[in-house]
Write a protein that binds this DNA or RNA. Structure first.
Lengths: 202, 202
DNA sequence: GTCTATAGCTGGATAGAC
DNA sequence: GTCTATCCAGCTATAGAC
């Protein structure tokens, strides 16, 4: 009757360790310790490190995509839609600040394997479709002012990059967590205003 | 008489391997193979993997900072300065596309050690000073419109993030290298226009 | 300086008792 | 299901010949 419980604890521990250390840096021993069990049991539930990692990675990737997807609300105006996206996605990332760097760096570690894994899943289909329609909307609305791909990149960049560069930023400047939180909170408004101004028509 | 030559080959090989695999994923054997020598010689030149890594990491970090520094040209107008920065930094990154992800992910792997290492170097002092004065300039010029920290973040994000997310983007969409190059080339103008518009006064 | 050979350890994986 | 004990491959690092 401990089945579900143990499996969950393993997943939580594995997630923590893999996110912190990456695949190569992670140790099964550390995962076991954190989960309060021993190594053998890890292999009982997930035959190998590779398999355990796959489960965790795909879960995290899925969450990142769902975060993206859920940030696209249905709105009549593309402008409102865009502003809602900035708000929601930054909020999502504040709750899961380590996800983007983990996903991006682990994909770049081995892009081909990632592509293989993607094929077997339908995970990002939904998100992908929404992103494309968003870009198409942007293009219809602002295509004469700006290339929509770049506009999309600009928005994503401004939302995501701060979370990716935080460790480095934190190391260089002595910015504490409370300050960081405020900074990200105010960031929502700043980015919205910045984008709105850049897209104003005259 | 082969000293310098061998040492250089080792460094180049180590750089390639560490950048691709990270510290934990890198193998001394792979570095040796790539350098056309054997493992023992690696240890002859650099006593341990850790030491070799330190040398490489600090070199790359230094280059990233120098790239940042050299992109700040002296100009009378802050607007021209900013546009020159966008141009130059994207150009730098096009020549070294893997640097940002490597630096950022390796720092986050172990921020404390990084901070320790930084203390012994004066590397980023120069870049740091220039960045601060840039932010101060931005603040004087646009402080009423926008928080300068966020403005700085916006610019850096839009320049750097595309290179960090490229592996993921490339995996999801089938964008080839030639297209990518064109995209980044046009990006310079797009980002400049985007920022300029966002900062227009009325 | 450069090589071959090997020591010594770490860490993923399995056997087998309970 | 969960544990202890152990195997064994892979890796860093060193010894020692040339």
């Amino acid at each position: 009757m401990e089945e579900k419980d143990t499996e969950l604890q393993i997943k939580e521990a594995a997630r923590t360790v893999f996110m912190k250390r990456g695949y190569a840096g992670a140790r099964m021993q550390e995962i076991a310790d954190l989960a309060g069990i021993n190594k053998a049991l890890l292999h009982y539930y997930y035959r190998s490190k590779e398999r355990l990692y796959d489960v965790i990675f795909m879960e995290v990737f899925q969450e990142l995509m769902e975060g993206l997807e859920s940030a696209f609300v249905e709105e009549d105006s593309i402008k409102v839609k865009m502003e809602a996206f900035i708000d929601l996605y930054i909020s999502t990332l504040m709750k899961n600040p380590h996800m983007p760097l983990f996903v991006v760096s682990e994909i770049s570690r081995d892009p081909d394997t990632f592509i293989e894994k993607l094929k077997t899943k339908e995970i990002f289909e939904g998100a992908n479709k929404i992103v494309l329609s968003f870009i198409s909307d942007l293009n219809n609305e602002y295509g004469e002012q700006l290339n929509a791909i770049h506009l999309f990149m600009n928005i994503i960049s401004m939302c995501v990059f701060p979370f990716i560069s935080k460790p480095m930023l934190g190391a260089i400047t002595q910015i504490d967590d409370a300050t960081w939180k405020i900074l990200m909170e105010t960031r929502k408004e700043e980015v919205k205003r910045f984008v709105a101004k850049a897209l104003e028509k005259r």
